[in-house]
């Protein structure tokens, strides 16, 4: 329930801020609209110091040790990032806004979601072959992030 509420707030903010708006995204990449740079910048300005404080505290609200891992660096960062950027430009959506736009009633967002699922499915299916090429981290089964 907590996750549904946080997701709803996040989705509402993405929707009303223009983060899922085709024209806002093109305007960002054309350097004509400042909106999305402002949003990402402020989001980081808020998250970074909060994260430092939380890491110093080391515990969650319920007193559990904070558990999150840094994402590993590998060749896939650059190649995958470039491919994702091309897709972001084509659709005007990054992953969160695909779902937000489906909620808003934008019919074409269903096609983007179908594509994204097939793309992710293809990647996972080919993982053992891509692993060495892109120096990807080994899969951790069972528990843990990765």
């Amino acid at each position: 329930m907590l996750y549904l509420i946080l997701g709803t707030l996040f989705g509402f903010a993405l929707s009303r801020s223009g983060a899922g708006d085709y024209d806002m995204i093109q305007g960002m990449f054309l350097f004509e609209r400042f909106q999305l740079y402002g949003i990402i910048g402020v989001a980081i300005l808020v998250t970074a110091p909060g994260l430092r404080l939380l890491k110093r505290r080391g515990r969650s609200l319920l007193g559990r040790p904070l558990e999150f891992e840094s994402k590993p660096r590998h060749r896939g960062n650059i190649v995958g990032g470039l491919l994702f950027g091309i897709g972001w430009s084509i659709t005007g959506m990054c992953p969160g806004p695909i779902l937000v736009n489906i909620g808003e009633g934008k019919l074409y967002a269903f096609a983007a979601l179908l594509g994204a699922l097939i793309g992710a499915g293809a990647f996972g299916t080919l993982y053992s072959r891509l692993e060495r090429v892109f120096t990807l981290p080994p899969l951790v089964k069972g528990t843990g992030d990765g």
């Binding site: 190649v79 995958g80 990032g81 470039l82 491919l83 994702f84 950027g85 091309i86 897709g87 972001w88 430009s89 084509i90 659709t91 959506m93 990054c94 992953p95 695909i98 096609a111 983007a112 979601l113 179908l114 594509g115 994204a116 699922l117 097939i118 793309g119 992710a120 499915g121 293809a122 990647f123």
Partner: peptide, 8 residues
């Protein structure tokens, strides 16, 4: 575009 987003 979605294919590139998912795979990328």
């Amino acid at each position: 575009g979605g294919l590139l987003i998912g795979f990328g």
